[in-house]
């Protein structure tokens, strides 16, 4: 099995670091990339697509951890653009897990209304074992 490709989209450096450590601790074989806002995340996907002549599944991240409150392009803004992007690139296997400190029910509902958003994690409110199970069930 090839390594699981994961992209963390969060402007908070410490939160990215902690999630990276948590993922490492799950002992899943994962390649982890990090960007700090929605705009950079979109670019990441576009770059994946442009990097060689033939597009191959597995080149792009399979799993996205997406923060909500970010500068430039926030989590919800990204979800809108990502919906469009999915019609252009064969990336429909990519799923998103929200990764945010917002506990607002409205945010949760809004995020989960996108069919490719698989889960909603509140920062610091989950155990590593839980994270492992969630990731395994999705990929």
């Amino acid at each position: 099995m090839t390594a699981l490709s994961v992209l963390i989209v969060d402007d908070n450096e410490v939160d990215r670091e902690l999630l990276r450590r948590d993922l490492k601790k799950t002992e899943l074989d994962a390649m982890i990339f990090e960007v700090s806002d929605g705009e950079q995340a979109l670019k990441f996907f576009e770059d994946c697509n442009a990097c060689d002549d033939g597009y191959q599944e597995g080149d792009h991240p399979i799993l996205l951890f997406l923060d909500i409150n970010m500068p430039v392009l926030d989590g919800f803004g990204f979800l809108e653009k990502f919906t469009e992007l999915r019609t252009q690139y064969p990336i429909d296997t990519c799923v998103v897990i929200m990764f945010t400190s917002s506990e607002a029910e409205a945010d949760r509902e809004r995020a989960l209304s996108h069919e490719f958003v698989a889960d909603y994690l509140v920062k610091g409110e989950f155990a590593v074992s839980e994270l492992r199970e969630k990731v395994l069930s999705l990929v």
């Binding site: 670091e17 902690l18 450590r21 400190s101 610091g124």
Partner: peptide, 17 residues
């Protein structure tokens, strides 16, 4: 409460690692 708690929680978890 949010802005005070969040760096404390993060620090505690960073300290664990």
């Amino acid at each position: 409460s949010h802005d005070l708690r969040s760096p404390i929680t993060s620090s505690k978890r960073l300290a664990d690692y």
